[in-house]
């Protein structure tokens, strides 16, 4: 059957508009980061500067603490993502498959933690972490981020486990697997899309978190990249070129990470398991 061309064109145009709208800030980031300082204010509003330069990138890499921020952020975001995903996989599986006393109380408590604005919690958390020597440390940040991300990640993982038919585990157990082997060899491989989604979600959340990083960290040595970006704002001026260059480079790991996991995000691994 031949489909009419017009709706297809309209469809593509709509998508194009959406993409342009969504990506414009990123484009502007890139544009400013390659604009030489002398052209930044002199050329007016242009889509692309008449002359481009990599100077900002070079400066940020060589003369700022950006590499430290970057390293700190990678450590914090990756550790948080891994720790949260492990916790959430186990707790999500438990919520999905087992019935136990106080299950609904636990679910209610986890939901409750999601209801408070984080700002309210900054002071008490500082109070808790400070005597433990966990302020101004990456470990402290990882602990705080993990605590805040586990509830939502648990619900996310639970919904993925719910989507895997119980028959599969039962078949594995009858085939001779223990509950844990069935979990590891049958359920976990099928939850890869869910694990990828959770990893990605938590990684980005931790990567871009500003509030706690700002409150719990002082000085450059343990600062993460969102805090570090603020160092480009000085009392008298904002160095936009360098700030944007740092911003572009900060996007790279997140983009790489999603490139890595997108295969699992889009793949429906459970297709064909049961009649459907």
């Amino acid at each position: 059957m031949k489909r009419s061309v017009l709706p297809t064109i309209a469809h593509r145009l709509a998508i194009l508009c959406y993409i342009a709208f969504a990506l414009f800030p990123l484009f502007w980031l890139l544009k400013v980061s390659v604009t030489p300082n002398d052209l930044l204010y002199s050329e007016g509003v242009r889509l692309w500067p008449s002359r481009t330069t990599w100077d900002h990138y070079a400066f940020v890499l060589q003369h700022s603490a950006f590499p430290t921020f970057f390293k700190n952020s990678v450590i914090v975001a990756a550790s948080t993502a891994v720790v949260v995903t492990i916790c959430a996989s186990l707790s999500g599986y438990a919520l999905s498959r087992f019935s136990f006393r106080a299950k609904y109380l636990i679910v209610a408590l986890m939901l409750l933690t999601q209801m408070f604005p984080l700002v309210m919690l900054v002071a008490p958390i500082f109070k808790i972490l400070s005597p433990l020597g966990l302020t101004n440390s990456l470990t402290g940040l990882v602990i705080v981020y993990t605590a805040f991300n586990v509830p939502f990640a648990t619900f996310l993982m639970q919904s993925f486990f719910d989507g895997i038919p119980k028959d599969l585990e039962e078949a594995a157990m009858i085939d001779g697997a223990t509950k844990f082997i069935a979990f590891r060899q049958i359920i976990l491989p099928l939850t890869l899309p869910g694990i990828a989604a959770t990893l990605g979600f938590v990684f980005t959340a931790a990567w871009s978190e500003l509030l706690f990083a700002l409150m719990l960290i002082n000085g450059n040595s343990a600062a993460t990249f969102p805090v570090g970006l603020l160092t480009f704002v000085s009392k008298f001026s904002v160095d936009f070129g360098q700030m944007m260059a740092a911003g572009v480079m900060a996007l790279i790991p997140a983009a790489l990470f999603f490139l890595l996991i997108q295969r699992y995000l889009v793949q429906g691994l459970t297709a064909g398991a049961v009649k459907g």
């Binding site: 038919p165 028959d167 599969l168 039962e170 078949a171 594995a172 009858i174 085939d175 049958i186 491989p189 099928l190 691994l269 459970t270 297709a271 064909g272 398991a273 049961v274 009649k275």
Partner: peptide, 14 residues
Amino acid sequence: DIAMVFQSYALYPH
């Protein structure tokens, strides 16, 4: 030591 055939087949998709 039993074998079972499920209504949903329950084949391991991976």
